[in-house]
């Protein structure tokens, strides 16, 4: 994984596109939490997820990018919008969207980002990977998950299955109290 450190100047087209996608992803994510319109927040989330998928694409992780769109934009945001529209979805600005925990949330968010970024920088500062087209295609991804990483995969499956059964138990009213 250790290749010669590449020159950062002049930046390649991929690097410029990647940076722009990063700016869009972070910018729209900030808008998600600062906008005063509830439904707009969910729609900015779509933009953020889309830019993230674009980032995966630039890193040749084609399969992950499409799954990101399919699951997050196609299912999660639709579920969010359904939930918002079912409860309350006023058009225009809402005055009561700010939580009293604003400051605490900001501190936790910045601290988490700080930990993650410093771990990444400390661990992978000198690790460079050449981007070969097709390296993130479905086939290499599948064989690495089901050959090298099959144990974590199975552990995650059990976790998801437990959550699934829990959701069914919680939502069924006819088996409560037994």
């Amino acid at each position: 994984m250790n290749f010669a450190s590449p020159a950062f100047w002049p930046p390649t087209t991929q690097e410029i596109v990647f940076l722009l996608l990063g700016v869009i992803a972070v910018g729209s994510a900030v808008l998600v939490v600062t906008t005063r319109q509830l439904v707009h927040a969910a729609l900015w989330l779509v933009v953020s997820f889309g830019a993230l998928a674009g980032g995966y694409l630039v890193l040749t992780a084609e399969f992950v990018a499409w799954v990101q769109i399919l699951i997050y934009v196609g299912a999660i945001v639709v579920l969010l919008l359904f939930g918002i529209m079912l409860t309350r979805a006023p058009i225009g600005r809402s005055a009561d969207l700010d939580s009293g925990n604003q400051i605490a949330a900001l501190v936790v968010g910045v601290a988490t980002a700080g930990v993650l970024v410093s771990v990444l920088v400390a661990g992978f500062r000198h690790a460079y990977m050449p981007l070969t087209p097709g390296a993130g295609a479905a086939k290499p991804l599948g064989s690495s998950i089901f050959r090298t990483w099959v144990l974590p995969f199975e552990a995650l499956s059990v976790l998801l299955l437990a959550a699934l059964i829990g959701a069914i138990v919680l939502s069924r009213t006819d088996i409560r109290g037994r």
């Binding site: 084609e62 799954v67 399919l70 196609g74 299912a75 097709g134 295609a137 479905a138 086939k139």
Partner: peptide, 13 residues
Amino acid sequence: DAGLFFVLAVMGV
């Protein structure tokens, strides 16, 4: 390469 997933993802949008 992942055309099938691309199609399903975009149709969901």
